[in-house]
Design a protein around this nucleic acid. Sequence first.
DNA 1: GTGGTCTAGACCACA
DNA 2: GTGGTCTAGACCACA
Lengths: 129, 129, 129, 129
Amino acid sequence: MFLIDQRSRKPIYEQIVDNVKNLIISGSLKRNDQLPSVRQLAQELSINPNTIQRAYAELEREGVTYSLKGRGSFVGSSLNDLRTSETEELLDDIFKTCISLQKMLCPKDRIIKKVEEAYNVGEGVDKRD
Amino acid sequence: MFLIDQRSRKPIYEQIVDNVKNLIISGSLKRNDQLPSVRQLAQELSINPNTIQRAYAELEREGVTYSLKGRGSFVGSSLNDLRTSETEELLDDIFKTCISLQKMLCPKDRIIKKVEEAYNVGEGVDKRD
Amino acid sequence: MFLIDQRSRKPIYEQIVDNVKNLIISGSLKRNDQLPSVRQLAQELSINPNTIQRAYAELEREGVTYSLKGRGSFVGSSLNDLRTSETEELLDDIFKTCISLQKMLCPKDRIIKKVEEAYNVGEGVDKRD
Amino acid sequence: MFLIDQRSRKPIYEQIVDNVKNLIISGSLKRNDQLPSVRQLAQELSINPNTIQRAYAELEREGVTYSLKGRGSFVGSSLNDLRTSETEELLDDIFKTCISLQKMLCPKDRIIKKVEEAYNVGEGVDKRD
DNA sequence: GTGGTCTAGACCACA
DNA sequence: GTGGTCTAGACCACA
């Protein structure tokens, strides 16, 4: 269920954070579901437990999960909360990148074409006439 | 002309690389123009010469600049070469972000609205009817 | 295992790069083997860690090694990849030198004799009739 | 008559040294011929006079030229002396490169094929049957 | 003057 | 522990 790329530039603990969020967004983890224990996940992924611990701490800090002493970590955010905040972040990235592209004199249409392309690739043709 | 954010997560030497590229793209630096010397730029930006040196070495490795022994560093890439390659990179970023947004069930129109917004902010209203 | 000549015209960091490549080519380092850590090698060779770091960065840039965050540097290239590319480079050197020798009116046979000589010295007589 | 590559890794003064030697070897400069004056050559090549001066000093140090106070620099070596010593140096390079190639398990025949190739390219086919 | 290499030593994020 | 970045300061070859 967790996909980690050891060679990626993105720190492993961030990848774990993203993985958990995606599992929530995809519906695999629901509110109040328990996350795998630090030790178990560490063993499963062959990753240092400190790294898992750090990821869980970060998730808790962001309010995505909560922990009960001696019991473990549990999903706190609802699917919708998370989906909304993540979406806003990504739209912000789009915005910033567009500003740069405009400075490079890239015509707006090229970007829009790219967006269409992504939506076609990702989902199959979504326009049927 | 150079803007460095000491607090940024992005290494200073990378920021310098980006600055030089941007100066070329904006037309402030033209092919065969001489860059400020390592020492001069270091003093101007209150940054260690080694860090500038590293940035210049990276620029040369990428073919953006070339250096003449004992003479200095000079712009090698043409504005258009650079603009093209940078644009492709950014469009790629757009593509990847769109894939993620689609997974979050973000409607395509929200993205396109964001793109339009960026183009209006950046340039003033460019479409009046 | 590492041989560094402090007096050589070739920069130390390049010598380290060459050393690592040779260890791979000779089979002493295999794919996914861990390289000595920056600090350890620095101490062993009585060389500044920054210089080792630079060599390792270059090796990674060339795709010969890869590094895992917080874990270390590892061999990425296979023996054969490296042997092939290095061989091509050296054959190219031979070609260029021959062009110069021809301009000096050196008869081709003198070169071929030299080649034979090198192969006899390096390996013991390899042709007995 | 002089070909200088400002961007080459080889220092300009070495390139000038090589140029003079080649002019002697090709017969364009004969024993006791006068070399162009430092100032004249510097102007012709748009190169710092110090650099020419350094090249001429090196040529004199190697015994290739001699200088007369207030008169200039003159060719000292005969064509044959020079051709012989340069040839020996290049053959030595071939030898060393072959040792390396042998370590990489490159078959001797690949080298010899390369030598033949260089002699064909450089001079037109030299074997007619 | 120019860029390039190196040492010494610090601090950082990450595992 | 690991690699990566940065400062400070020296020295080099080269033009």
